[in-house]
Design a protein around this nucleic acid. Structure first.
Lengths: 218, 218
DNA sequence: CTCGGCGCTGTGAACACGCTGAGGATGCCG
DNA sequence: CGGCATCCTCAGCGTGTTCACAGCGCCGAG
C-alpha cells in the first residue's frame, strides 16, 4: 500500500511518515500544494493524507483539481481549524474523510484503514470528449448518444487517446502502450486502426499531425 | 433517498427525522437495536444513521451482524463517547463513518452526503436484474418467476456477474474470484460454465464481449 | 511544377478467440 | 460397489479480428 502525505509542517510530516511506515505502508511526502498535486497525479498511490493549510495551493483546491481531472484517489483531509463549516467544506469539495488537528494517531489509522477498505470510491465512470463517450467498465462507446461497437484493439486505442485529449500522440507511443510491446508491429497498423475508428466514429474526430502522430479533437 | 435512523433517545430521533425530511429524504426511525437490525435487513435503505448506545443490541454489534450477513448499506455511526478508541472500534467493526455527540447538524448532513455520494458497494440481499432473481441466502435463482436449479459453480458465477450488471468482467477476473485462486484453471472453464448458464437461463442473458470478457444484460 | 515521403485504404491470409460435445476424474450417497 | 452429479480438460470447428502488403493520393519542400 502506497500513501502520499502532503503536509508542510516538517515535524508532523516526519512523524506521520515514520508511524505509517512502521505499519507497513510505503510513504512519500510532499511539502507544498503544487508538489502534492503533481505527485498525486502521477504517483499511483492508494490513498492521500492531505493538510488543508499548504503553501502554494490549499488542500481544498488541490482535491477539487484532482477530482476535476478525474483522479479518484481516496483523500483523508487534515485541518487545524475545527469550525464545523470547514468540515462540511472539505467533504463537499471531494475529500472522502476529514480529521481535525489535533488528532490521535489511532484514529488516523482507523480512518485510513476504513478508507482503504472502501477502495477507490468512484471510478473514472466515463471518459467524455465532446459528444463522444467511453465507459471502461461497461466497455461501451457512444457518439452523440448512438452506440458504436468496437473491437478490442479499436477500443484500447480510443481509450488511450481519450485519456490524452488534445495531445499529439506518436505512433511509436501507441505501439508501445496499446499494442503488445513484446511483439514487433509495423507502425502502419496504427494507421489502419485510426482508419477504422474514423470510419466508425466520423472523420472529424482524429486529426493527423503529419510527421508527429495523431490528436483527438477537443 | 431512503434513510434509516436507529436512535433510542426520542427527542433526538424526532429532530433528525424532521431535519432530514426537510432535506428531501424519506426517513424511518427504529428505537431499539433489534428493531434497527430488522429494518436494515429488510428495508432497502440507501443509508443508516446509527447510535452506538442502544437497548437490546449495541450499534457495534448491529453493524457487525449486518456485515456478516453481507449487507453493505452505508452506515454513519453516532456516539456519546468521544474516547479515541471508540472511533477506531466503530470503524473497524464495519461502519463507514463516525460522528461524536454532540454533533452539529451541518456536519451530519455533509458526512451523510459524502457517504451517499460514495455509494457503498451495492450488495442487496436479493439480487435482481431484469426478470432474473438471485437470493444468496436461500441459494435460489428464478427467471421470470420460474425456478432454475444451478450447481454450486454455476451459482457462484452468476452471483458474481449479477453484482456487476452491465459491466464487462474478464475471464481472468472470474477465475480469480469465482474459482479457487490457488488452483490453476484454464480460462476455457469459464466459457464452459457461461455455456451452461446460457442453456439454463436463456441465450440473451450473457453477452460475450470478444477479447474482453462477459457482460450481464441490463 | 516536380518529386519524395508520409499516410490512407482495399484485399486477403493467418490467427486467435470463443463455443460445444465428449469424456475422464472426483466425490457423494444409497 | 454402482449410480449419479459435478467439475473441468480436451480437441475440433466456425467466425471475427488482426495485420502485412502494395498501390495510390496527398502534402510539403525545393
Amino acid at each position: 500500500m502506497r500513501l502520499l502525505v502532503v503536509e508542510d509542517e516538517a515535524r508532523l510530516a516526519a512523524a506521520l511518515q515514520r508511524g505509517l511506515q512502521a505499519e507497513g505502508f510505503a510513504v512519500d511526502v510532499a511539502a507544498t500544494g503544487p508538489a502534492g498535486l503533481d505527485a498525486a497525479r502521477h504517483g499511483g498511490y492508494d490513498a492521500m493524507i492531505l493538510d488543508v493549510m499548504l503553501p502554494g495551493l490549499s488542500g481544498y483546491e488541490l482535491v477539487r483539481r484532482l477530482r476535476a481531472e478525474e483522479h479518484w484517489l481516496p483523500v483523508l483531509m487534515l485541518s487545524a481549524k475545527d469550525g464545523e463549516y470547514d468540515q462540511a467544506d472539505g467533504l463537499d469539495c471531494g475529500a472522502d474523510d476529514y480529521l481535525t488537528k489535533p488528532f490521535s494517531y489511532v484514529v488516523l489509522l482507523a480512518r485510513l484503514r476504513a478508507l482503504l477498505r472502501r477502495g477507490a470510491p468512484q471510478r473514472p465512470a466515463v471518459l467524455a470528449v465532446g459528444d463522444l463517450r467511453l465507459d471502461p467498465a461497461r466497455r461501451r462507446v457512444t457518439r452523440a448518444d448512438a452506440e458504436v461497437t468496437l473491437t478490442a484493439r479499436e477500443f484500447a486505442l480510443l481509450d488511450y487517446l481519450m485519456r490524452r485529449p488534445g495531445q499529439v500522440v506518436s505512433k511509436i507511443e501507441l505501439l508501445d502502450h496499446v499494442w503488445d510491446a513484446s511483439v514487433e508491429t509495423a507502425p502502419n497498423a496504427v494507421e489502419v486502426y485510426v482508419g477504422y475508428l474514423r470510419r466508425k466514429l466520423g472523420r472529424d474526430l482524429l486529426e493527423t499531425v503529419r510527421g508527429a502522430g495523431y490528436r483527438l479533437a477537443t
